Simulated assay, not measured.
Amino acid sequence: MLYPLASLEADKLNAIQQLENDLGRPVVALASVEAQTAELPKDQLKQLQDLEAELDVVLVAVQPN
């Protein structure tokens, strides 16, 4: 299972913004995505981690459907 940022309709966004105001801090909305992560050999994992560091992002290898 992966959790990217959720796409929200205006009413849901408004509800979250109200909660942020009530809490006094930001709230991040995530959506679930069915995905099976791939197990990578050490050399491929290092490639992925090196690119993560270069791009300053999180990368996840997944099994193809």
Score class of each variant (00 low, 15 high):
26 P>C: 13
29 A>Q: 03
36 Q>V: 00
4 P>I: 08
49 Q>D: 11
57 V>S: 03
63 Q>F: 00
47 Q>V: 12
64 P>K: 07
5 L>T: 07
60 V>M: 02
16 I>P: 04
47 Q>D: 13
18 Q>I: 10
4 P>G: 05
24 G>E: 10
25 R>F: 03
53 A>W: 14
58 V>H: 13
63 Q>M: 03
7 S>F: 10
65 N>Q: 02
5 L>I: 02
49 Q>I: 08
58 V>S: 12
32 S>D: 11
60 V>P: 00
8 L>T: 08
64 P>I: 02
62 V>A: 04
24 G>K: 08
37 T>H: 01
46 K>C: 11
47 Q>N: 13
15 A>H: 04
59 L>V: 09
41 P>I: 09
13 L>T: 15
14 N>G: 15
44 Q>T: 11
51 L>N: 10
48 L>D: 09
31 A>R: 11
31 A>K: 08
4 P>C: 10
27 V>E: 04
25 R>M: 07
57 V>P: 08
12 K>C: 05
55 L>I: 14
10 A>P: 13
50 D>P: 02
23 L>I: 10
16 I>A: 06
60 V>R: 03
32 S>F: 09
36 Q>N: 01
4 P>N: 07
20 E>Y: 04
51 L>Y: 15
37 T>F: 00
3 Y>N: 03
36 Q>Y: 00
6 A>D: 03
6 A>L: 01
